[in-house]
């Protein structure tokens, strides 16, 4: 089973890893979500704490917006698969993760972005 962590903001993937306060953690296996997704609200944004959380929670995959090279390298070093610079609504992004079709820098537009709140 894999564990996905996504910093989110409203209905979107949070633009920045270091400024995110809302974290979605999803367990998935063979393209389906296992159990209930978990949302964590951080007391304050902190890239260091988020990296610690990734390690502590044994996260295997991270999908995020902008991330600094330093933290990206740290997560990769910790054998976490990081897919960064992703823009889009997190539900659609999650679908792409489950389909195994998401790649770095993807902009997921379905034309319904106006209905989403940032």
């Amino acid at each position: 089973m894999r564990k996905l962590l996504m910093p989110i903001q409203g209905d979107f993937i949070a633009p920045r890893f270091d400024l995110a306060t809302e974290i979605l953690i999803v367990n998935f296996e063979n393209g389906t979500v296992q159990g209930d997704p978990k949302t964590i609200i951080m007391e304050r944004p902190s890239d260091e704490e988020l990296c610690q959380m990734v390690v502590k929670e044994n996260v295997t995959d991270v999908v995020c917006g902008g991330i600094e090279e330093l933290h990206y390298n740290f997560l990769v070093w910790k054998k976490v698969a990081v897919c960064d610079s992703v823009i889009g609504g997190w539900k659609k992004v999650l679908e792409k993760v489950l389909d195994n079709t998401l790649s770095q820098g993807d902009i997921i537009l379905f034309g319904d972005e106006q209905l989403l709140t940032l």
């Binding site: 902008g66 902009i107 972005e113 940032l118």
Partner: peptide
């Protein structure tokens, strides 16, 4: 930003700029 104009057309400006200026929700 590293994004071509054609790719980010119609996307909220802050999702592309990603600043820390207190504008993360516009």
């Amino acid at each position: 930003t590293g994004y071509p104009s054609t790719k980010v057309c119609n996307i909220h400006g802050e999702l592309v700029i990603r600043s820390n200026t207190g504008n993360n929700r516009g």
